[in-house]
């Protein structure tokens, strides 16, 4: 069984976000890039566990990004995985990115394509569904437990208002979240090995971008917290009702 793990880079969670060029571009100065946590902690680690258990024969990593994503993909290789593919393109449009991933996956017959549940930069949570549609495959989102046996997966997933257990024959696409595995940190051997693992750069196919980001805006700063003491709980309730108008 061959697994493809989709990896994107994201600003470290503590990064202060700011914009340049009239609020049309992310100010990348000082931004520390990390592997998007959902695919690092869950999709990738679970894929590696399946390989270590002898269930998966190969784990490939794919990213759609320019050369500046290579340190992140090397870090992913240091955690494990046999080879990486970088589609040499930069886009914010999910349809464009999904088309690139689907195109590559089509000609390499993966049994399982794994995503993070959401990218922490654009928060679309869309990629898996798009790739699945383009590959005409089933799609299971928000998977928090994954087992593979006899050409089928057994998963637990979070659904609206609860949890569900499902089974599905391979091949399919899933998105991964908390519960699936425990985060790992790369060790020295992994880091050394990653240097010589294949990182194939592939040219993108021509696809229209269906959306574009026109500009960004920062949230309005809070005017400051209004402090009350323990004997003012009726006053707090009055403020929530009359001033904030939330109850």
């Amino acid at each position: 069984m061959k697994i493809l793990v989709c990896i994107t880079k994201a600003p470290d969670t503590t990064t202060k976000i700011a914009f340049t060029d009239n609020d049309t571009k992310l100010n990348e100065a000082g931004v520390q890039w990390i592997i998007n946590p959902y695919e690092e902690w869950y999709a990738l680690v679970r894929a590696l566990e399946l390989k270590e258990a002898g269930i998966a024969s190969a784990v490939h990593l794919i990213t759609v990004g320019k050369a500046d994503t290579e340190p992140v993909i090397r870090k992913a290789l240091a955690l494990g995985g046999d080879e990486a593919i970088r589609i040499d393109a930069d886009s914010n449009d999910s349809f464009y990115i999904a088309s690139q991933i689907a195109e590559y996956a089509k000609s390499h017959s993966y049994d399982l394509v794994m995503m993070g549940k959401e990218s922490i930069d654009y928060n679309n949570a869309s990629m898996g569904a798009m790739v699945a549609e383009m590959l005409d495959l089933p799609y299971i989102t928000h998977v928090c437990k994954l087992d593979v046996a006899n050409g089928a997966v057994a998963v637990n997933r979070e659904i609206e208002g609860g949890e569900e257990s499902d089974t599905c024959l391979l091949p399919l696409v899933i998105s991964c979240q908390k519960g699936m595995s425990e985060a790992r940190i790369p060790n020295m051997r992994g880091i050394m090995a990653a240097r010589t693992k294949p990182l194939n750069v592939v040219a993108p196919i021509a696809v229209d971008e269906l959306t574009s980001i026109v500009s960004y805006e920062m949230p309005v700063q809070k005017t400051g917290v209004k402090m009350l003491n323990i004997d003012q709980m009726d006053e707090l309730v009055r403020l929530l009702h009359e001033e904030a108008k939330v109850i």
């Binding site: 914009f19 229209d208 971008e209 269906l210 959306t211 574009s212 026109v214 920062m218």
Partner: peptide
């Protein structure tokens, strides 16, 4: 932050 997204299709 917020983004303003233009849909072209």
């Amino acid at each position: 932050a917020f983004a303003f997204v233009n849909v072209k299709s």
